[in-house]
Design a protein around this nucleic acid. Structure first.
Length: 121
DNA sequence: GTTGTGACTTTTT
DNA sequence: GAAAAAGCCACAA
């Protein structure tokens, strides 16, 4: 019985993990999203940490664009788990500029309600 | 059922 | 402006 389960969109079933995976997969090419944003879209605006945990457990496989997820500062937090170099390379492979301070959110941050193209500004 | 932890975020000093 | 601490949620043991 989940009398509170209907609060979330039925389009995405399962637990918090599946919603996170669904949101991450919704990130368009050449765009990045923060953990907080993914968590927010997943229905848990305070579960940003868990977003990383879900992706970590999910692994670097599965066709999941996990590399498009970064922290609120636009930096890569995966260096702690040894995936920083990989993520940085994947981001550059999508045309995203990765500077010494990370990625420029003002330019590459994904807007779920807009279809704006990156690099246009 | 309880305890501990983390690929974070925000607030305070 | 930079650094430190607390808060927060979900999952694993």
């Amino acid at each position: 019985m989940t009398p509170h389960a209907d609060e979330l969109p039925p389009k995405i079933a399962g637990g918090f993990r599946e919603r996170v995976l669904a949101v991450v997969r919704a990130i368009p090419y050449g765009r990045v999203a923060t953990y907080g944003q993914v968590a927010l879209l997943a229905g848990a605006p305070r579960a940003a940490r868990q977003v990383g945990g879900v992706l970590h457990r999910s692994g670097t496989e599965g066709g999941l664009p996990w590399h498009r997820v970064i922290n609120a500062a636009g930096g890569i937090s995966t260096y702690k788990v040894g995936a920083g170099a990989l993520q940085e390379a994947l981001l550059r492979a999508e045309g995203i500029e990765v500077g010494p301070d990370g990625v420029e959110l003002a330019r590459y941050l994904w807007r779920p309600e807009e279809t704006e193209e990156p690099g246009v500004g």
